[in-house]
Each structure stands twice: as C-alpha cells, then as structure tokens.
C-alpha cells in the first residue's frame, strides 16, 4: 500500500507488535484494568464477612490460603492469583507511564489562555493522579494488614484485629477513605473508558456504559467505605 507500510518480513511476536503501538498499550491498560476490576469487586464482597463475625472473617482469610486444597498444595492458588494481579498491576502502570510520556510529547506547550473543558470531567482528567494515589495506598494497605508492619498503630494477632486497629486509628482510617475516593474516580472513568479502548461499541448498548460505571463504582466504593464507617461508629467492634 503506502510507503509507510511496515516491513512484513521482520515481524515480532504478535503481542510485542501490538504493544509497540499506543493503541496496543491501551488494550493492555484496558485488559489489566478489567483484571483489577474483578479483583476490587471480589475483595469488597469477601470483606462483607466483617459484618458476620470475627470468626467468619478470619476463617475467610484462612480459606483464601487453602483455595483448592488439597487438590493443589496449600497457598498455591492464592500465590498464582497474586502473580496474575502483580503482573496486571505492573503492566497497567508501565503502560500508563509510557502513554503519559507520549502525551506530554504531543502537547509540550499548554494553552496560555484558560482552557474551557466541555466534555472531560474531573475523573477523566485526574486518572494519573487517582492511579498514583491508589498505587501508594496499595503498599500501605499490604504493610498494614498483610505484612502487619504499619507504623501507625498496633498490629494485632488476627486479620480481624488488624482491621479494627487500623480503622480505629484516625490517620489510617483517613488514608483508607481518601484512597477509596481516588479509586472511585478512577473506576468511574475507567469502567466507561475501557469499552472504547477495547473497541466494544454498539449504539444499542452504549448508553449502558455510563450506568455500569456508576453502578460498579457505587457498589465497590460504597462497600469499602462502609467497613471503615462501621468500625468508626462502633457497628463492628
């Protein structure tokens, strides 16, 4: 076709070729984003056991370690899931960083006059910031509850105790609330945006994309925030 046609003979593996383009990186963002969505939803639902009892909640945490045991060795399934999540997170963040750099190059000089945005909402314009807040929070969250090495409060022997100690500490609870609000904005734009990136566009269903994004965000963030509020108000103690 045109002079710009890429050389067909020297082709790299499909995934490498796709990733080389910005569009391919967006596919990676969307697919790893979907993995993340599955995770945050499952995570919120699992934690609803906080409302049952300390025993149920601790048993749930323990059971995660024994998924498919004794078919698979103890901890194997959980660690495989962790591996997938870490890979997805790394892919998501690396692609985000590369695309952000590309976009800075494409618009190095901003407008001198005040830009009047018409369509881009707060969530869409702050994806990079809400993403970074979520990433930083993720490390704190793991240190806090998984590794039990938080500097902010006493750790506690069981997972349940650690959750209570964490949410009863104002600084820690504040970080949870802030991070969930950031994640909320990220999800509000991300869930809508991934349909465009994946090329899932059908005029009969398009109006449901925003509805889905709102519903998903409200369910996940509502659930997560309810845990903090329930501890702070003594509903869970």
């Amino acid at each position: 076709m045109a002079a710009t046609a890429p050389e067909r003979s020297k082709r790299s593996p499909f995934i490498v070729e796709l990733y080389r383009s910005a569009l391919g990186k967006k596919y990676v963002m969307a697919i790893t984003g979907i993995v993340g969505l599955g995770y945050v939803l499952a995570h919120m639902i699992g934690n609803l056991k906080l409302y049952q009892s300390a025993e149920d909640f601790n048993l749930y945490a323990e059971t995660l370690r024994e998924l498919l045991y004794p078919i698979a060795p103890e901890g194997l399934v959980l660690n495989l899931l962790r591996g997938v999540l870490i890979l997805a997170l790394v892919g998501h963040v690396v692609a985000a960083a590369q695309l952000t750099a590309m976009n800075r190059r494409a618009r190095p000089e901003s407008y001198r006059s005040k830009r009047d945005y018409v369509a881009a909402d707060f969530a869409a314009r702050t994806m990079r910031w809400t993403g970074v807040i979520v990433l930083l929070f993720l490390f704190y969250h793991l240190a806090d509850l998984t590794w039990a090495v938080t500097p902010l409060h006493e750790a506690g022997d069981t997972v349940y105790d650690r959750v209570l100690n964490s949410f009863n500490n104002p600084a820690s609870a504040g970080f949870y609330i802030l991070a969930n609000l950031a994640l909320g904005f990220h999800l509000y734009h991300g869930v809508w945006s991934l349909f465009q990136s994946m090329g899932w566009n059908n005029r009969r269903f398009n109006h449901w994309r925003r509805t889905l994004a709102v519903a998903f965000t409200v369910v996940v963030i509502g659930g997560n925030l309810s845990f903090v509020i329930a501890v702070l108000t003594g509903v869970i103690s």
């Binding site: 076709m1 045109a2 710009t4 046609a5 890429p6 383009s21 910005a22 569009l23 990186k25 967006k26 695309l99 590309m102 976009n103 190059r105 494409a106 618009r107 945005y117 018409v118 369509a119 881009a120 869409a124 314009r125 994806m127 734009h189 809508w192 945006s193 465009q196 990136s197």
Partner: peptide
Amino acid sequence: HMVEVMEEHFGSCTNMGE
C-alpha cells in the same frame, strides 16, 4: 497504517471526549 502514522505525530487517546 493510518493508526501508526497518526502515532508518529500525535498523542494517545484517554477517552475524554473533548
């Protein structure tokens, strides 16, 4: 081809709708 030439000159879409 059109996508790849586009990417040589312009940025990457984040679905803002502007």
